[in-house]
Design a protein around this nucleic acid. Structure first.
Lengths: 338, 338
DNA sequence: CTGTTAGCGCGTTCAC
DNA sequence: GTGAACGCGCTAACAG
């Protein structure tokens, strides 16, 4: 059983021609004799023939494989998105190659090159870069592309994103409505648009409410530094009564704070966060979560891509119509208990 | 830029022959003229030529891609394993296609067929089945294969596993040494070897200590049912003072118990579990974790596979030498605080 | 040192 | 209804 059995072998075994077997494999029975059909079936079973997807792909210029590059696997968001994409692709008999760029533009570009070399039929990318240039090759080669979670300036590819500005604004507004005034901010450096928008929403909510920003209650930086920053904030005279934490890694750091210092987050400290973290509500009696519909976003992205790849819908049509700003939902931990 | 630029186009542009360009691409400059080399380089740059990995794979019977089928993504263990495999493969310039079988033999088989059709160079599988037959095709086609986490009876493929029996035994022994006597068991149905071994270790530890098994304190079933089972155990007259929970999904269910009933796991209830769960130690003052070196296991599996795929080491050599029963580590939550 | 040729496994006209 | 022949893009002898 060592040698690969090919179409030719089947043809020989069944005493028909290669192309007849090919027809058979592709369900073109139109003019095929019942008897030959039977012979082919038997030959295939006997030889345990398996079509070679590589060879077929070479000929058809199609691999029924799409590539997915995510910025960072450690985010729960990415995990959910990936599962959604996989689930969707399975239905359409597509394969998925997943790559993790670790928020590194260079690594991302390497993956893009590899995926293109592998002739994938399309890509879904959670971009690690704001710069159009990393994605230019994909577009110039007319490879279907969908961006997810983050947008890229001046790119004609459709993207599935959440309205970060609005979400942040409303969540902070929600805090303010409930009487909180000293609201701190903890998040990563403001490199991505997403992050900027989240911060902008935060700021705008404060401004609208006539609350002055307090530089001392803000941290933009590495995940590692979040604990120290939080610790510093909490030891200040005018310490925060609420905290806006802009992603789940930061939230975990904040929660681990309690672990490290063997004390809990102050009872009365309200937390607002994007991305749900399991058990987080145990650590803060008042936790407000901005729920991003990660799974749905993944599904939409996959749909958008498959429409191009599978149904041949041109990207332009989609970009106009489908540039989603998916809805989110602000939810209190009290709702969970209820 | 629409049409794919091929080797032929480059050759034409550089005024050389196709094979010369091929040589160039593969770094065989041995006898190549400086001048032609320059011309080729320029042509490649100008045309933005990208080699077609599919075509190359067809010829070389090699795709530099391996397939990974995991039983279930929701386990933290799988996540870590996948990352390890990816990290390792990147170093050797291999690609990874990841599939999630959802503990379903049929789905697993489908993935196996798809991966074989895609001519992957090797596979790493966390088996969803104990039965050899799902993997027979892979072996008969001489495709390199490594099993991970679970073994498959009578399969000649090397496997990387932990000694579940020993780990369970020692962990329960540990509980007994600390004075616990009414030790309950919560785990999935005893279908896989792994699960049986974990339960066997549990039983043996009790037996050795002369403690009678109590059927009422045992649950083998769906994850969904774990809460009800736990609830029942805890409301019994002779309720458990310790609990052995055999995987992380079950543990999460048990912890969520507290959430649902708005009360904590009893203060004095000791927990033992495989697989670490973030924050779990917050819920049980006494948590003993059997740490499986997931990342290392993934690395080892990848190494084992790449030795076959990349270095051509025959599987027999590996099966003798490398069938690992990797070490684990029993760790108390008290150690963490220390 | 470079060009010619023959496949890798499959799909597709176009005659028979 | 069926088969011969060509090509997808690339590599690997073998000539020259």
């Amino acid at each position: 059983m060592r040698k690969n059995v090919t179409l030719r072998d089947v043809a020989k075994e069944a005493n028909v021609s290669i192309s007849t077997v090919s027809q058979f494999m592709n369900g073109r029975f139109t003019y095929m004799g019942e008897e030959t059909k039977g012979r082919i079936e038997q030959a295939i079973a006997q030889l345990n023939y398996r079509p070679n997807a590589i060879a077929r792909g070479l000929k058809q210029q199609k691999t029924t494989t799409i590539g997915v590059i995510i910025a960072n696997v450690v985010h729960r968001f990415s995990t959910l998105v990936v599962r959604a994409i996989e689930d969707m692709c399975i239905k359409y008999n597509y394969h998925v190659i997943i790559c993790n760029a670790d928020d590194d533009e260079t690594k991302e570009k390497q993956y893009i090159d590899m995926l293109m070399a592998k002739q994938i039929d399309g890509m879904i990318i959670i971009p690690s870069s704001q710069d159009r240039k990393n994605y230019e090759d994909i577009l110039s080669y007319q490879i279907p592309l969908v961006f997810l979670d983050r947008t890229v300036e001046q790119s004609e590819a459709p993207s599935v994103v959440v309205n970060n500005y609005k979400a942040s604004y409303e969540a902070v507004r929600h805090l303010i409505d409930r009487g909180y005034r000293n609201i701190g901010f903890i998040g990563p450096e403001l490199k991505m648009n997403t992050r900027k928008e989240r911060f902008r929403g935060f700021e705008e909510a404060l401004r609208t409410a006539g609350i002055a920003e307090n530089e001392k209650l803000m941290y933009h930086g590495e995940v590692n530094g979040a604990q120290k920053a939080l610790s510093a904030m909490l030891s200040r005279q005018q310490k925060p009564d609420a905290l806006f934490i802009s992603n789940d890694r930061m939230l975990v750091e904040a929660l681990t704070f309690a672990k490290t210092y063997a004390l809990n987050i102050p009872e009365d400290l309200a937390l607002v966060t994007f991305d749900e973290v399991e058990y987080a509500s145990f650590f803060s009696p008042s936790l407000t979560t901005i729920e991003q519909p990660a799974y749905q976003m993944g599904e939409e992205a996959a749909e958008l891509l498959l429409k191009q790849v599978n149904d041949g819908v041109p990207a332009e049509e989609l970009s106009r119509e489908y540039v989603h700003r998916t809805t989110f939902h602000v939810r209190d931990s009290t709702e969970i208990k209820a």
